[in-house]
Design a protein around this nucleic acid. Structure first.
Length: 139
DNA sequence: GCCAACGTTGGC
DNA sequence: GCCAACGTTGGC
């Protein structure tokens, strides 16, 4: 049975690895997650799932869309072998970045998982929330 | 099993 | 750079 694709939001510090870096490289190992809840989300990702790429620390905005290219495998940067990584490939940049402030100000997004646990580096996004964010990007 | 100390993340 | 949130760890 074919499962519909899921949507996620992944945070990355642009200083460390920006969406433009992902576009340049074509594909990257998205590693370094050191949180069990986030690891559960990583394990739930399937090839073809779409990932909203969010810049934390600087930018503070969703800037592009990526896709899961490889499902969870042991994080090569974790010597203890407890956490997992996935691989991402870029799909397209957003026409206009959608900032955190704009997302917070939109009542349609107030239930977003990223606000409930804002420190998680990965969180699920509903199809409705994805639609709202993409719509905001075109305004 | 409780709880204080500590570490990590990310907004401001 | 600071602080809040919260997960993890370890002593008891």
């Amino acid at each position: 049975m074919q499962q519909a694709a899921s949507f996620w939001l992944a945070k990355s510090e642009p200083k460390t690895y920006a969406f433009s870096d992902l576009q340049r490289d074509g594909r990257t190992v998205w590693d370094g997650v050191r949180n069990n809840q986030a690891a559960l989300y990583l394990k739930a990702m399937r090839v073809g799932d779409q990932v909203l790429y969010y810049h934390s620390q600087e930018g503070l905005a969703v800037v592009g869309i990526a896709a899961v290219a490889r499902e969870a495998f042991p994080d090569p940067t974790d010597p203890a072998g407890r956490f997992v990584a996935v691989e991402l490939t870029p799909l397209r940049p957003l026409p206009k970045p959608v900032t955190l402030a704009e997302m917070k100000a939109n009542p349609a997004l107030e239930a977003m998982a990223m606000f409930r646990q804002f420190r998680l580096s990965v969180c699920p996004v509903t199809p409705e929330e994805r639609g709202v964010i993409l719509g905001m990007s075109e305004a």
